[in-house]
Nucleic acid binder design. Sequence first.
DNA 1: CACCGTATTTGACCTACATCAATACCTTCA
DNA 2: TGAAGGTATTGATGTAGGTCAAATACGGTG
Lengths: 250, 250
Amino acid sequence: MNTTHAPAPATAAVTDLNQLRVACSSCSLRELCLPAGLDAREMERVDRLVNQRRKLRRGEHLYHAGNPLVALYAVRSGFMKSCVLQEDGREQVAGFHMTGDMLGMDAISSGRHMCDTVALEDSELCEIPYSYLEQLSRELPSLQQQLHRIMSREIVRDYGVMMLLGSMKAEERMAAFLLNLSQRFAARGYSSAEFNLRMTREEIGSYLGLKLETISRVLSRFQQDGWIAVRHKHIRIRKADALHQLLGQR
Amino acid sequence: MNTTHAPAPATAAVTDLNQLRVACSSCSLRELCLPAGLDAREMERVDRLVNQRRKLRRGEHLYHAGNPLVALYAVRSGFMKSCVLQEDGREQVAGFHMTGDMLGMDAISSGRHMCDTVALEDSELCEIPYSYLEQLSRELPSLQQQLHRIMSREIVRDYGVMMLLGSMKAEERMAAFLLNLSQRFAARGYSSAEFNLRMTREEIGSYLGLKLETISRVLSRFQQDGWIAVRHKHIRIRKADALHQLLGQR
DNA sequence: CACCGTATTTGACCTACATCAATACCTTCA
DNA sequence: TGAAGGTATTGATGTAGGTCAAATACGGTG
């Protein structure tokens, strides 16, 4: 990055812009995120809920396992991963998070986070103080509903991962992984056919319960079959059908 | 079972007893279950929330995937399993549930259940109408907190299963499974060292991402090592330390 | 632009678990 | 009480994916 460039043109009105950009009501993600389904009056109150943003550079932690629960977080931009760790040091990626995803719900049960969450690229997060969220969701039924939906969605997602880890073979896991990413990018208005992986082969492997070499081999095989084109972290899906079939069959 | 025995002595006052037994305030599970942390006044209102009990015979479904969300359920007695299924018919056990556990949170996100839940032995469940629960939890902060804690606990539990499926080998999975059961029985006042498995080897295998033969073999090996005594479904843990060590090490 | 550390690919070989198969054992129900 | 069907054990063999190793490619840095 050329540091001699002038700062971004917005500098003159930083405070205002921050104000503006932090508001859920003017956020392009509002239909994906916490305020989904709220009306204008309700949205206004939620705007005040999200009182801060947090910027993370690639590699920085949002929270560590053991940290006390302070807030939940919504990904505004960037890409994150969550890892569970065992006493013996083994670590496993429990999820990848992108724009609009809510983070930190693992901490509600005990008041302490149970996993590490790290930025895989420079990211920005909205910080939602938890006690205030609890309070406001008592006053706004739609917010309460959405919070419950989001937690439940996480439970359902986890069931999917169990299925993947417990009863799929390497190629099926990879197909499921690629299609899931593709579909999530699509839901955010990006191409479903072409995207960049933000994580390493090792991180994919950890998430899928496989070794990095296996990830590499499976990707190569998919490419040879003409189902995808891989170049480093760039993926193009050529035959989504074939990938879907791999899952549906057997 | 000798069917010529007279019915239980309580028959004369069935209605009253049902009333009594359905009340959270007089339920021995209240500290494990939804009303944990409520004071007397709050408990009274929750009593009215749980308006029905449901009895299931072994093998009967509590709900199927696709059923609309009506209520959440608390296990009063018995033993249940939840299974996720794929299009192709493959099914995987996502969890085993015992006394005091809450069920059905998977349905909140979409309004439909995402898994099947089945009784592994004759069981009794408290039915908690969801819309009423939402409403009451807006009025009772402690109830809201407990509901959130329960959902979060489920998320954390799922992380544990991911860890298990994604990065542990057969013996470790089995050790983790046995210790988890043991600890849950202990929390309910039963022996932590001796209990009956309510599920088949195949169901354990499905949960742990292994085949039933592997389950059988690992149990035999543990027995040969003198760590446990197995006879059919009866388990006695002889060296919990050894099992713990198996997990902590590496 | 050259260098270094990290990420990726690919091959050869090995092992943990799956698969297949035979037997034994419970449980249940007539 | 006995027969049938589900459940569990154990052995023999196969294989998907792990492990080890080497070659290559890349991005960041001075």
